[in-house]
């Protein structure tokens, strides 16, 4: 084994990762700027950017700084969080069909938000609804911890997640069922479709700490996800503390998904699709897939949020709906590919 060969081998993986990260960062940057330039009021590009950076009394400044910028920041933030959560869930469960919604936290956050809409609390303060969503997510975490117990493998956690999801779904259905007021029911249904329209800096500030903290937790577990490639027994004998990993995944994903759902409603498929598309680009390495999926998620959500404004400008096409329309065929493609691989 000569020096140069081992040098190239050592660098190949790292360079591949770096290139992917740079390419995705550029994509996110381009989509972010594009997102800032799109809205119901069409304005020249130069004027928009001048308003953004120079400020002033112009109403354009208000549009750029208080409407479009927080919207784009939220899309990037939530997309990154969901992409990362998806990569973490797939790595933890060693399953390409896993996604953040499996834990039931998004469902529970939706219950909190729906109850606040139903009871009218949502109308009392600007952030009442997202806070109610966060409360729902917190309840879900307690339930999961209670059901899954302090120790044990990934299976009990996922069974607990399925239980919490089912309960949350039933609660939302019950709320809709008993809603005396068709207007409130309508509002609930619309909120659940997921959207980033008219979100403010307050929403950003509410979600930011949770998403950043959750992301830091998940990113710290790269080695553990890599070790899990060979199963839980090997991972444990490679020095991974499986109990700590389980809690970190649970709390990290819950923080990200809970905060995202609380401010933007139910946005599915990002966490499922993004790690899948990007897995090949990092040689399937679970640790490298984490940062790459975060950037990929940000790009996908920014792109989708641009698309909903471009495709049907006047109709308020919901983000969650668009992603589901795109995501469902992708899911079918995944199943077909898995089936073909098994037949080989």
């Amino acid at each position: 084994m000569n020096e140069t060969t081992s040098q190239t081998i050592r660098q190949r993986g790292a360079r591949g990762l770096r290139l992917t990260l740079i390419a995705l960062s550029l994509l996110v940057a381009v989509l972010f700027v594009t997102s800032l330039l799109i809205g119901p009021i069409s304005m020249p590009v130069g004027e928009s950017l001048r308003a953004l950076f120079q400020g002033g009394e112009d109403p354009l400044v208000l549009v750029m700084r208080e409407l479009r910028l927080p919207r784009a920041v939220l899309a990037a933030l939530i997309g990154a969080g969901l992409g990362l959560s998806g990569a973490a869930m797939q790595g933890y469960l060693r399953n390409p069909l896993a996604e953040p919604g499996l834990l039931g936290v998004s469902g529970a956050a939706a219950v909190g938000a729906v109850l606040s809409l139903q009871s009218g609390i949502a109308a009392t303060a600007a952030l009442a609804l997202p806070f109610a969503g966060l409360g729902g997510a917190l309840v879900a975490v307690f339930l999961l911890a209670l059901l899954a117990g302090p120790r044990g493998g990934s299976l009990t956690l996922i069974l607990a997640g399925i239980g919490v999801s089912a309960l949350a779904g039933a609660m939302v259905a019950l709320t809709l069922n008993l809603s005396p007021d068709p207007f409130a029911a309508n509002e609930i249904v619309f909120w659940m479709l997921g959207s980033l329209t008219d979100r403010s800096w307050d929403h950003v500030l509410l979600a930011l700490p949770f998403i950043v903290l959750g992301s830091a937790m998940l990113l710290s577990q790269g080695r553990a996800f890599s070790a899990l490639t060979l199963g839980e027994d090997v991972a444990a004998t490679l020095g991974v503390n499986l109990t700590r990993l389980r809690w970190t995944v649970l709390l990290g994903v819950a923080a990200i998904v809970g905060a995202s759902t609380a401010v933007a409603g139910a946005i599915g498929f990002v966490g499922l699709v993004v790690p899948h598309i990007l897995r090949r680009s990092v040689g399937a390495r679970p640790a490298h897939l984490l940062p790459v999926s975060a950037l990929g998620g940000a790009a996908l959500l920014l792109a989708a949020d641009i698309a909903v404004r471009v495709i049907l400008p006047g109709r308020d096409l919901k983000l969650g709906v668009l992603l589901a329309i795109l995501g469902a065929p992708f899911f079918l493609h995944l199943i077909l590919r898995t089936r073909l691989a098994q037949q080989r």
Partner: peptide, 29 residues
């Protein structure tokens, strides 16, 4: 313990299509 003992279980299931080199490198974690 991971520096004291290495374990090869009966289950040889590999979750992801990582390269052989990457898989072997896991032993160095």
């Amino acid at each position: 313990r991971a520096r004291q003992v290495a374990f090869l279980p009966q289950n040889r299931d590999v979750a992801w299509p990582v390269s052989v080199r990457d898989l072997v490198s896991l032993g160095l974690l």
